[in-house]
């Protein structure tokens, strides 16, 4: 969600030089990025709920439901079998070999009135704090972009709370700009 500037740049260049191998997954900062598997689910649920709690810090209208874990399990399980979904796991190597430390959830959306007609949407992205600031978040986004583009997306969008300035800066630096806004009020 918030890799720090300097190192992120370096890794970005590094990752651009070597073409990532989609099957094996590429190791960035001691973490391997690969398609999620069924046995990742318990860890992915934890990460997704952490992300939703983080979102809850920005706005009371994003307060997390008590059954968030069940919801997460339901949504993530569905992702695994949905051809329109993309679920990437970031898996530690070395001492913590095999431990899932990050997740990216994305989907392909049809745009009924606009061109490009297909939109790759990054719905959720979360890294455990110890794995931030090293360029891994950037790599996840780039990897998702590559795959979604392969699947026909002509535009990549991301969704996050409006008051998340860290995310705003992170994406702005990578060429994203706001195109639609969701405004809310309690009723």
């Amino acid at each position: 969600m918030e890799p720090r500037k300097g190192t992120a740049q370096k890794d970005r260049k590094g990752s651009e030089r070597e073409a990532p191998d989609p099957g094996e997954g590429k190791v960035v900062r001691g973490v391997r990025v690969r398609p999620a598997r069924k046995d990742d689910l318990p860890a992915l649920v934890g990460l997704l709920v952490r992300l939703k709690r983080l979102n809850g810090e920005f706005d009371p209208l994003l307060a997390v439901r008590p059954d968030a874990e069940e919801q997460a399990l339901r949504v993530l399980s569905a992702d695994l079998s949905n051809p329109n979904s993309l679920l990437l796991s970031a898996e530690a190597t070395g001492a913590d070999e095999g431990k899932v430390v990050g997740v990216l959830r994305a989907t392909i959306r049809e745009r009924l009135f606009y061109v490009p007609e297909k939109e790759g949407v990054v719905l959720d992205i979360y890294l455990l704090p110890a794995h931030r600031r090293g360029g891994l978040g950037e790599y996840l986004v780039e990897e998702a972009t590559r795959i979604l583009k392969e699947r026909g997306a002509g535009v990549i969008t991301v969704e996050f709370p409006s008051l998340n300035e860290i995310a705003t800066r992170f994406y702005a630096k990578r060429g994203f700009r706001p195109i639609t806004s969701i405004h809310a009020r309690s009723v």
Binding site: E2, R50, R53, L54, E57, L128, P129, A130, I166
Partner: peptide, 22 residues
């Protein structure tokens, strides 16, 4: 510790403690 549940909250509200947690 770096995986404590309140770490994201610290990241937003107490950057100094967050850095030490890492």
């Amino acid at each position: 510790q770096a995986e404590r549940e309140d770490l994201d909250e610290l990241m937003l509200h107490n950057r100094w403690k967050y850095d030490l947690a890492l």
